[in-house]
Each structure stands twice: as structure tokens, then as C-alpha cells.
Amino acid sequence: MFYLRPGQINEEPQTVSGDAPATDWPARYQQLAQSAQAAVLRHFYAQGLPPADTPIAEVPLVAIDFETTGLDPEQGDIVSIGVVPMQLQRIYNRDSRHWIVRPRSRLGEESVVIHGITHSDIEESPDLARYLQPLLEQLAGRVVVAHYRFMERNFLNQALLRRLGEGIQFPVIDTMELEAAANRLTLWQRLCGRRRVSLRLADCRRRYHLPFYHPHHAHTDALACAELLQAQVAAHYSPQTPVGRLWC
């Protein structure tokens, strides 16, 4: 997870390019399975998705996090990927994956300081193209869970555009969005000068008494995000909540 500075986080994230409005995702996957050019993508979409009215407890999920060379998906690229398969009841951490890849854009000093992945680390690493197949296999048939969906969605989309000539679309359960919704202030509270709560991953976790994990490691952040979703659903929703209410 590449942390935004507080000013860059809006309480209600606005729509960014590539962030499709909530829709009938299973239908769109069916359609994309026909229209996608790359075989790996056709296969990905063909795994389908559970219908929007499926209780969240029955939906296969996967938490993901990327470390990147910068904040702008057009300019930057992915440096490392953490993938943690899960369900509402249990995080299959023993099946989680962590890959370091060589980005196609320059690794800025500023980002090295944040995620600690250095130039020599990426020198020895392959291009993302090498892990595309195992990555998409991990995501196929599962609903992605991420903290601040624009990062994961746009960076993966751009990464694929560069490498396959076509992008990727997928629904995301955004734990930052869920947290914003759970803490949305009423007009009255805003008039009273109540401050908005911090939506940073570590701050969100603290509200559910989850332990502190050191940030900026793709796998740890993905795991942290997976735990956060379990806590949020336990606190604000129910195992019966339809997945369609949570994804976007």
C-alpha cells in the first residue's frame, strides 16, 4: 500500500478513470470472457463471479496490495504484490503470495524510502509479465479486497495495458470506503465541528482493536486489509449481507 498524504485522501473518494460504477459484475465478466483478446484474461473472466445477492460469508475473497514507484498509475508501475486469499471466517494466510517485480518506470528515491524495496532488489526481479498468470489465477473467481481501490485497480489496469495492450476490470470491496461509510458524519456533527476520522489503514485497524503491523510491505498490508474486512463486517454488517452491497 502506497500511503497517500492526509490531504490526498478524500472522505468520499471520487470516481477516477477506470473505476466503473457498481454494476452487474457477473454479467460483465461473462461479456468480457468473450471480448478479451489475451487468453490469460479470457480465462480469468471465464471463472466468473458469484451473483450480487450472494451472502458475503459464502463469497471467495482475495485481499491484495501493491507497492508502486509513485502515486500516478499513468507514470508509475508496480514494484511488489501481496495476495492473501480469504473468506469472511478465515484468512488463508498460509496460501498467500508475495512477489517483487521490476517496474517499467523509474524507481523514485521517495518511494524507496517508503517501501524499502531498493534498486538492487528489483534488478534481480523479473518483469510483472512473468507472474501475470499465477496472479490472475489467484484473483480468478474471487472478489478483490483492497484498502483504497483506486490504487490497486488502476495500477493493475495500467500494468496490463502496457504488457498486454488491454486493461482489466474487476469488482473491489474497498475497506477504506466501508470505513468512510461507517464513520460518515451527519450534517449536525459537521456543524458541531466534529472532525473526520482518519481512514489510513493503521488507524482503521485500531478502531477494531487489531494489532499494529508495520506498513508498506505488500503482503503485510494485504493481510492487514483482510483482517480489517473481517472486523468491519463483524461490526457493521452481517455474514448474510449480499456481496453486491459491498463491492463497487
Binding site: 498460509r94 493481510l223 483482517e227 473481517q230 472486523a231 461490526a235
Partner: peptide, 13 residues
């Protein structure tokens, strides 16, 4: 450490 899974339980559950 490689082999553990993780689960969260809300107070009272």
C-alpha cells in the same frame, strides 16, 4: 509463521 491462517472475532462472539 508460514503455516498460520488468521481469523478475527468480535467481542462477545
Amino acid at each position: 509463521a508460514q503455516s498460520v491462517d488468521v481469523a478475527y472475532y468480535k467481542a462477545g462472539s
